[in-house]
Simulated scan of single mutants.
Amino acid sequence: MAVFTEVPPEEARALLQRLQLGELLALQGIVGGIENTNYFVTCSAGEFVLTLFERLRPEQLPFYLYLMQHLAQGGLPVPNPRADAQGNIVHSVCGKPAALVNRLPGKSQLAPGPQHCAAMGQTLARLHLVGRSFDRHQPNLRGLAWWNETAPLVLPYLGPQQADLLRSELAYQNAVAATADYAALPRGPVHADLFRDNVLFEGEKLTGCFDFYFAGVDTWLFDLAVCLNDWCIDWATGAHHPARAQALLGAYEAERKLTDTERALLPAMLRAGALRFWISRLWDFYLPREAALLAPHDPTHFERVLRERIAHPLQL
């Protein structure tokens, strides 16, 4: 989340009027993340999050917003987009496509223990299972095709060792994706960005998963790998953390058992998850956009995670 577009109070008031949510009481820009403009909105009807989409096109938005609605109706703790009197959940604010969702309770647990990881694993499996009945389709727009397109843009900024790593890992992931085993992996809607700061807790109870704007149809194993790479590592070194990983995987498999092919390909998908976020952070770091509030992430973190996943593959 970030602020690329300054939203005047009168624009927020007009949206609240269209959605019949009463008077605007407070409007606060949110710093963090790097894709969209986000504000906390407090009004007489409650607390909400306003998102203005800076890169996504209006025709792409229904997938994300209706997926959130589908998951919320399936009992998952995710934001539910607010509709206007005509049933529209894609709105316009400051000339940009926008959405307003309910603000979920709790706060992010940035130093989770095994119990938090278990709650995450259970919720991720439920998300995958509930998502099976979602009838819209959109590919993961930050998947392999995007990695292949974006790597040449960031390579000029890298040293020789980094460039060699990026080229070799991209070649490896293209080879994996061409195999029959990869094609056989179970898939469906995935969050694809379910990091610790996109999940809320009250104590040990998971109360919310948000920021679905990288979601798409991909392998469930990739989604699981993204979580393991953020929740279950030593954050300073990128090294595997066995206790947290065991808790997350055990809770996930209590809801949905991994197939033999998934178990065999998990090391490759852990590398894929690290590569995806290394490339995107390189892109955002070296080719940034202007924003009123923006906190770019350190790209070297996922370089370390990738090197760890290559040197010490996880074995189930």
Rank of each mutant, 00 (worst) to 15 (best):
H91C: 06
R167A: 03
P97I: 12
L104H: 11
H137L: 00
P114Y: 09
A98Y: 08
Y157G: 03
D164V: 13
V101L: 15
A111L: 14
T123R: 12
Q109N: 08
L144N: 01
L100I: 14
R167V: 04
L110D: 07
M120S: 14
V90T: 06
P97C: 06
H137Q: 01
L158V: 00
L104F: 12
F134I: 15
L141T: 00
L158W: 02
Q122M: 09
Y172V: 01
R132N: 08
A125S: 04
L158A: 02
W147S: 00
N102D: 11
R132H: 05
L110N: 06
P139Q: 04
L124R: 01
P81S: 12
A163L: 08
L170G: 00
R132T: 06
P112R: 03
G113T: 03
R167M: 08
N148W: 03
M120K: 13
R132A: 02
S168Y: 05
S92Y: 10
R82S: 15
A111G: 07
S168E: 07
D84I: 04
T123Y: 06
S168I: 03
N102T: 09
R82V: 14
C117P: 15
W147P: 05
C94Y: 11
A163I: 08
S133E: 05
G106D: 11
T150C: 15
L129R: 08
F134N: 13
R126M: 06
A175G: 04
L110C: 08
T150N: 15
Q173I: 03
G143L: 04
T150R: 13
R167F: 07
G131Q: 10
P156V: 05
L104R: 09
P114H: 09
G95A: 14
V154F: 00
P156S: 10
H137P: 00
N80G: 10
P81M: 14
S133A: 09
L129Q: 06
T123F: 10
G131Y: 02
G95E: 15
Q162I: 14
V130I: 11
D84F: 10
A83Y: 08
P160V: 14
W147V: 01
E149A: 13
V101I: 13
L165P: 11
A175L: 13
H128G: 04
L100E: 09
A151H: 07
L104C: 10
R136E: 11
I89E: 12
L170W: 00
R132D: 08
W146I: 05
Y172P: 01
H128P: 03
